[in-house]
């Protein structure tokens, strides 16, 4: 017909992909959308009221119909009305938004942890089982997944619109976000914080798989060594076990079961031993001297990559006893006897 092919193509595109809302693919998405619709309704009502006032008055009081204006000073009652009503609505929005915020940023205790390292211009994902991915992320559905993220260079931001989650990825500091995917599928993954020339190339996909498929994927893509196993090797090769033997009177504190505990510091403060604490202590030991120990630990800044740090952190998190620490040591120095029954060791 007379319609030009370009226009036709455009119309076709418009009709087939005219999504107004992204898919809801996580447990958080319906909550976010609920607030969004509330806010949309608020906007619509606001615009309608203002529009009705402006248009209504313009018609009713235009010069042709009302040649003489009546001077009115104002009205305290009205002022109070349109101060208080918006205020109340905004406060509702505030509370609702805050609840959603805490829902998005406070992960459930049982979530599985995946590490993300951002660098110009790629996303690396490190699964606990040792699977590595670049610019993709495979996650199971129906299970809370927490991302512990860090940047090697500049600010990045990890955004999965279909899950309605996003968090800045900061150099030198872990940040976290979590989600629970509900629908298997392939979703957008964006870097949303401007990070230099190829910012728009720092994109990828998040693939949500059903638990079975996820298991298959995990088995197929494992590198054979889990993060904790890598970390154990690193722990020995960097000589950490020389001081952190786990024995009483050792130069370094016992690390078994440390993760998640509150640690008493030399300067009197207490610090929570979370991932960030473990990482920062390896890099900046002088800022984290535990009570009763001397600040003799050297810094490992510049000696371990972010991936290596992740391995070490995972290892320390998994470290429940010192049996293997001491076992690796005895093969070298054999100053301490290895316990006969693993698992019975006193920390």
């Amino acid at each position: 017909m007379g319609i030009s092919p370009v226009l036709w193509q455009f119309l076709n595109k418009w009709l087939t992909s005219s999504a107004l809302f992204p898919k809801e693919a996580s447990t958080i998405a319906p909550y976010a959308d609920a607030l969004y619709f509330f806010l949309l309704a608020m906007t619509l009502v606001g615009v309608l009221i203002v529009g009705a006032l402006v248009f209504g008055f313009s018609l009713r009081y235009r010069k042709e119909r009302n040649p003489e204006a009546t001077q009115i000073e104002g009205s305290t009652l009205l002022e109070a009305t349109w101060t208080i009503i918006p205020l109340v609505i905004f406060l509702v929005t505030f509370v609702w938004g805050a609840l959603l915020y805490f829902r998005i940023y406070n992960p459930p205790a049982n979530s599985m942890n995946i590490y993300i390292v951002g660098k110009q211009w790629m996303w690396k994902a490190e699964h606990p089982g040792g699977q590595h991915e670049i610019n993709t992320l495979h996650v199971p559905t129906g299970r809370p997944v927490q991302l512990t993220m860090i940047s090697q260079d500049v600010f990045h931001s990890y955004s999965i619109p279909e899950f309605r989650v996003k968090r800045e990825v900061i150099p030198g500091r872990y940040s976290t976000v979590w989600f629970n995917a509900t629908e298997p599928g392939v979703y957008h993954l964006f870097c949303t914080q401007y990070c230099g020339t190829l910012h728009s190339g720092m994109i990828g996909t998040v693939t949500a798989l059903s638990p079975d498929d996820y298991q298959k994927w995990t088995d197929a893509s494992t590198s054979g060594m889990s993060l904790a196993q890598n970390g154990e090797r690193l722990f020995a090769s960097l000589g950490c076990n020389q001081c952190h033997t786990g024995a009483a009177g050792a130069r370094g504190p016992n690390l078994a079961g440390l993760y998640g505990k509150k640690v008493q510091m030399e300067d009197g403060s207490t610090q929570l031993a979370n991932e960030a604490f473990l990482r920062d202590t390896i890099l900046n030991p002088s800022s984290h001297v535990p009570a009763g120990y001397k600040p003799i630990m050297p810094t490992y800044q510049g000696q371990i990559s972010e991936e290596g740090l992740i391995d070490l952190v995972e290892y320390l998190k998994s470290l429940k006893t010192n049996y293997r620490v001491q076992q690796t040591l005895t093969t070298a120095t054999s100053t301490e006897a290895a316990p006969t029954t693993p698992g019975m060791v006193k920390p």
């Binding site: 890099l283 900046n284 030991p285 002088s286 800022s287 630990m297 810094t299 800044q301």
Partner: peptide, 8 residues
Amino acid sequence: KLGVDMAQ
């Protein structure tokens, strides 16, 4: 006297 990290 400081650790290297703190000295930095």
